[in-house]
Amino acid sequence: MKTVIVIPARYASSRYPGKPLVTLDQGDGTRKSLIQMTWEAAQGIEGVAGVYVATDDDRIAEASRAFGAEVVMTSDTCRNGTERVAEAVRGMDIDVAVNLQGDAPLTPPWFLTALIDAMKDGVQMATPVLKCDPQTYANFMEDRRAGRVGGTTAVFDHARDALYFSKEVIPYLPEAEKARPPVYHHVGVYAYTPAALAAYGGWSEGPLERLEGLEQLRFLENGHKVRCVEVEAQGRVFWELNNPEDVPRIEAVLRGER
Rank of each mutant, 00 (worst) to 15 (best):
V149M: 11
A138H: 10
A159H: 12
D143I: 02
A154Y: 01
R145W: 05
M141P: 00
A138N: 10
N139Y: 09
R144F: 02
K167T: 12
F140L: 14
G151F: 04
V149E: 08
E168I: 03
Y164P: 00
F140N: 00
Y172K: 08
G151A: 15
R145C: 05
Y172R: 10
D143Y: 08
F165A: 02
V169D: 00
F140G: 00
L163Y: 10
H158T: 13
K167N: 14
A138L: 09
M141N: 05
I170Q: 09
M141D: 06
M141C: 09
I170C: 06
P171I: 04
F140H: 07
M141Q: 13
K167Q: 14
D161N: 15
E142D: 14
A159D: 14
D143S: 13
V169Y: 00
A159I: 02
Y172G: 04
N139H: 10
D157H: 07
Y172W: 14
A146M: 11
V149F: 10
E168F: 10
V155M: 13
R145G: 01
F156S: 04
R160M: 09
Y172F: 15
S166A: 15
Y164F: 14
Y172A: 12
I170V: 15
R145K: 15
A159K: 13
L163C: 09
E142T: 12
G150Q: 03
A159N: 14
A159F: 08
V149N: 08
M141E: 15
A162M: 12
G150M: 03
D143A: 14
A159C: 07
D143M: 09
A154R: 01
G147H: 07
G150V: 02
A154L: 09
D161K: 11
V149G: 03
A138E: 14
V169Q: 01
F165R: 02
V169W: 00
G147S: 09
A162T: 04
A138F: 07
G147C: 12
D161V: 08
R160F: 11
R148Y: 10
Y172S: 08
Y164A: 10
V169L: 05
M141L: 14
N139L: 14
G151K: 00
R145M: 12
V149L: 13
D157Q: 07
V149T: 13
G150P: 01
I170E: 07
V169T: 11
T153H: 03
V149Y: 07
K167S: 09
V155N: 02
R144K: 15
A162D: 01
R148F: 11
L163I: 15
G147V: 08
D143F: 05
E168Y: 12
A138D: 15
E142M: 12
D157L: 10
G151N: 08
Y164M: 11
I170S: 04
D157I: 03
A146Y: 05
A138V: 04
S166Q: 06
Y164N: 08
R148I: 07
G151Y: 02
M141Y: 04
R160S: 13
T153I: 07
A162Q: 02
F140R: 00
